[in-house]
Amino acid sequence: MTHPDVAALLESACLLAPEGTATANDLTVRDVWEYLAHDEWETALGLLEEFGDGHQLPSTFWARMAEAAELLHLARSSAWCRWRCTEIRNGMVRADLTLRPAAEARRRTPLAGHGVLRPMWDIGNLSPAGGTSVSIAGLWVEGRPFLEPGGRATVRLVPFTPRHWTHVEAGRRITMHEDRTVAGTAVVLEVKPPVTVRPEG
């Protein structure tokens, strides 16, 4: 890793964030430039991640952030930034998920919260024969590295086949499956469709 590589990526990400963008603590892009000027890469990266919480930033922003995080050996930050790229491409469903207790479900161990799990979801679709048809979506637990059996948390889902999810709206109850049994139940809080990128020219 060379510092110029990280600096160039973070500076490029800064240029993609609107000047007025601010974190919950009222830190702005101008503050990020100040941290970059003092070679405080991790702090700058963390602030730029926060900008994405309340603003729709382009996938290029997240891709450059992911590269910078990889150079800094920040595995979770890199995974998060790559996850955000996928949200832009495939859409995102935010939900309040409650897992079934270990005594009532197949899962006995906590599930990883950083996007590696790809469970099946019953979102109301039917097969040609009229039976339940499940759809796969990746799962990211907000603010926690794991979610234990019986636990409850806000999660973000990235559909593998976005067209299967177009009817899903806030307030809908959906169920999570890791096999034929129900692993958890979620109430949809927010739905963001895929971002359509118009070709240039």
Score class of each variant (00 low, 15 high):
residue 129 A to T: 13
residue 117 L to S: 11
residue 27 L to K: 12
residue 114 H to W: 05
residue 73 H to D: 12
residue 161 T to I: 08
residue 173 R to P: 01
residue 2 T to N: 09
residue 50 E to K: 10
residue 161 T to V: 05
residue 112 A to H: 09
residue 72 L to K: 10
residue 138 G to E: 06
residue 151 G to R: 01
residue 195 V to P: 14
residue 180 R to I: 03
residue 127 S to P: 00
residue 126 L to P: 04
residue 25 N to R: 14
residue 67 E to M: 07
residue 111 L to I: 03
residue 104 E to C: 04
residue 147 L to T: 00
residue 96 D to V: 04
residue 199 P to R: 03
residue 85 C to S: 07
residue 196 T to S: 13
residue 179 D to A: 13
residue 56 Q to D: 13
residue 14 C to T: 11
residue 115 G to E: 04
residue 12 S to Q: 10
residue 14 C to K: 10
residue 194 P to V: 06
residue 79 A to L: 15
residue 176 M to D: 03
residue 190 E to D: 13
residue 68 A to F: 09
residue 193 P to N: 11
residue 190 E to P: 05
residue 43 T to K: 11
residue 145 P to S: 12
residue 78 S to W: 02
residue 52 G to E: 07
residue 172 R to H: 15
residue 172 R to Q: 15
residue 199 P to L: 02
residue 64 R to I: 00
residue 48 L to S: 07
residue 49 E to K: 11
residue 111 L to D: 02
residue 19 E to A: 14
residue 141 V to G: 04
residue 45 L to I: 07
residue 5 D to H: 10
residue 147 L to M: 09
residue 11 E to M: 05
residue 33 W to N: 14
residue 68 A to L: 08
residue 187 V to Q: 06
residue 92 M to R: 15
residue 71 L to N: 12
residue 112 A to D: 07
residue 184 G to F: 08
residue 2 T to R: 11
residue 27 L to T: 03
residue 63 A to G: 14
residue 15 L to S: 15
residue 171 G to P: 03
residue 118 R to H: 05
residue 82 R to G: 07
residue 132 T to W: 14
residue 76 R to A: 10
residue 60 T to S: 15
residue 192 K to V: 15
residue 79 A to F: 08
residue 122 D to L: 09
residue 82 R to V: 09
residue 11 E to D: 06
residue 68 A to E: 09
residue 41 W to C: 02
residue 73 H to W: 08
residue 131 G to R: 09
residue 63 A to D: 13
residue 184 G to E: 03
residue 55 H to G: 08
residue 162 P to D: 03
residue 112 A to Y: 04
residue 58 P to L: 05
residue 79 A to T: 01
residue 201 G to W: 00
residue 95 A to W: 00
residue 52 G to N: 09
residue 98 T to Y: 01
residue 158 V to L: 00
residue 200 E to G: 14
residue 33 W to F: 11
residue 118 R to S: 14
residue 167 H to E: 05
residue 166 T to M: 06
residue 101 P to W: 07
residue 176 M to C: 12
residue 63 A to E: 15
residue 163 R to W: 00
residue 31 D to A: 09
residue 38 H to E: 08
residue 40 E to I: 04
residue 109 T to R: 01
residue 44 A to P: 08
residue 167 H to L: 02
residue 69 A to Y: 14
residue 82 R to L: 07
residue 78 S to L: 02
residue 192 K to S: 15
residue 107 R to K: 06
residue 97 L to G: 04
residue 102 A to W: 07
residue 174 I to R: 09
residue 47 L to P: 11
residue 91 G to I: 01
residue 28 T to K: 15
residue 149 P to D: 02
residue 71 L to P: 11
residue 193 P to C: 11
residue 185 T to A: 01
residue 88 I to Y: 10
residue 16 L to N: 11
residue 36 L to V: 05
residue 16 L to H: 11
residue 1 M to Q: 06
residue 180 R to E: 15
residue 36 L to C: 05
residue 52 G to Q: 05
residue 125 N to A: 02
residue 92 M to H: 06
residue 65 M to H: 10
residue 51 F to S: 11
residue 36 L to E: 05
